[in-house]
Simulated assay, not measured.
Amino acid sequence: MGDTHVDDRGLAQDGTIRREGSLSRVPAAFAPVVEAARSRITEAFGAAQLHSAYLYGSIPRGTAIPGVSDLDLLLALHAEPTEADQAAARAVEAALDATFDQIEGVGILLFGAGTLLSELERNDLGFFLACLCIPLLGDDLARRLPRYRPTSLLARETNGDLCLSLPRWRSRAAEALTDAERRSLSRGVARRVVRSGFTLVMPRWGGWTSDLEESAEIFGRYHPERIEQMRVAAATGRTPSTDPALLTMLIDDLAPWLAAEYIAVHGSKAPRP
Rank of each mutant, 00 (worst) to 15 (best):
270 A>P: 01
179 D>L: 04
164 L>A: 15
82 T>P: 00
16 T>Q: 06
131 C>E: 09
115 T>P: 01
96 L>Y: 01
80 E>W: 03
176 A>P: 01
107 G>K: 10
158 T>H: 02
209 T>S: 09
61 R>Q: 14
28 A>N: 12
144 R>F: 05
197 G>V: 12
170 R>M: 08
10 G>F: 01
193 V>D: 01
19 R>M: 02
38 R>N: 03
90 R>Q: 14
10 G>Q: 02
222 Y>L: 11
136 L>K: 00
93 E>V: 10
32 P>Y: 12
158 T>C: 11
177 L>A: 15
148 Y>H: 04
53 A>W: 00
180 A>L: 11
14 D>P: 02
7 D>Q: 11
213 E>I: 06
245 A>I: 08
244 P>K: 09
90 R>A: 15
266 H>A: 10
252 D>P: 00
87 A>Q: 15
143 R>W: 04
194 V>D: 06
137 L>E: 14
208 W>V: 02
167 P>H: 02
95 A>I: 06
181 E>M: 07
108 I>K: 00
164 L>H: 14
9 R>V: 11
100 F>C: 08
205 W>E: 12
57 G>P: 02
21 G>W: 00
233 A>E: 05
8 D>P: 04
219 F>C: 04
162 L>H: 04
250 L>T: 13
167 P>T: 08
44 A>I: 05
101 D>E: 15
115 T>V: 08
265 V>K: 04
207 G>K: 01
136 L>F: 02
58 S>F: 04
170 R>H: 09
260 A>V: 13
57 G>C: 09
198 F>T: 04
198 F>H: 01
41 I>P: 00
269 K>M: 13
75 L>A: 13
243 D>L: 13
36 A>N: 05
196 S>E: 05
183 R>E: 15
180 A>Y: 06
220 G>I: 10
262 Y>N: 07
4 T>Y: 06
47 A>Q: 09
25 R>V: 11
51 H>N: 06
31 A>M: 12
213 E>N: 10
91 A>Y: 07
194 V>K: 02
14 D>T: 10
11 L>H: 02
3 D>Q: 12
253 D>K: 07
231 R>C: 07
139 D>N: 10
18 R>A: 10
157 E>I: 02
29 A>G: 11
85 D>L: 00
186 S>N: 09
268 S>C: 10
253 D>W: 04
150 P>Y: 07
203 P>K: 03
64 A>D: 12
218 I>G: 03
40 R>K: 06
251 I>W: 00
151 T>Q: 05
244 P>C: 12
230 M>S: 07
142 A>K: 02
208 W>M: 10
262 Y>L: 08
22 S>D: 12
83 E>I: 09
102 Q>F: 07
45 F>G: 01
89 A>V: 11
161 D>K: 07
146 P>D: 06
68 V>K: 14
23 L>G: 12
247 L>I: 08
65 I>F: 03
73 L>M: 09
111 F>T: 05
273 P>D: 14
237 G>S: 12
260 A>W: 04
112 G>E: 07
132 L>T: 13
91 A>S: 15
273 P>F: 08
200 L>S: 05
169 W>T: 13
11 L>Q: 01
250 L>N: 12
263 I>G: 03
161 D>T: 08
127 F>G: 03
73 L>D: 06
234 A>D: 11
120 L>E: 14
150 P>T: 14
167 P>W: 00
145 L>S: 04
